[in-house]
Amino acid sequence: MNIENDDNFISIDDISFLQLSDSFFPTGLYTNSNGLELLFYNKNKDKKLTYNDIFDFIRAYLSQQVGPTDCSVIGNVYNCIQKNNYSTLLELDNMYYFMRLIEETRSASIRSGIQLLKCISSFTDNNEYVNFYLKNIKDGSAKGVYPVSFALSCNAMNIKKERSGLMLLYGFTISVVGAALRLGIIQHYDGQRIIHEMKPVILSNVINNVNRSYSSMWQFIPQLDIIQIHHEQMDSKMFIT
């Protein structure tokens, strides 16, 4: 089914790459602002949030958490698949879950993870890793965290490891940009410019972290953690995280 022409090579897998990267893909990411909503209400008291604030916000997440944990999980899931290592797959799920220290983001990760897997399994060929993970979630021996589900879904659609990492970081970026747009912090051209200017950050974080061993995953965003905890306590909110 491939149309091959030396350098020009396109395939069904490229379309799958587009499908899973699309914000249209139903995983509920549009309900997350990752704490931006809190910042919006807090900062508005004295000073308006700016384009640069949104950029720094996303960059801090990508290089200090999503890169060194989520993206590293993606790489490790692919390594497990390559080595047929089912037990490490469950260990990754467990480790990521117990590293997600803020209640709100932890439950959001699991909800999106499980729904993503169910959606994928409804139309892909019987993928043994997806089935294995779904079965373990059902039995209670796995949690269903988002990056593990995401990597397994990408793998089930023949998407390569590094690309899967790019998609995850890209997806994170657009979900925050989407929240910023809906909160009226930036306008639609700004949103696309942030995404454009974030590309080198996304790329370097995938390159630096997709081959990181899972024993050396880390995260360090104390200020964002506190923002997220304060969001968790808000009385009325538009976003889940």
Partner: peptide
Amino acid sequence: KTRFIDIAKLEPKKENIKAFGIMNHY
């Protein structure tokens, strides 16, 4: 049974720890 895991890495010469979201002005 695991209760939690927290792993922090600070390399101030490589990453600006005082950036927004990390430690900011604290």
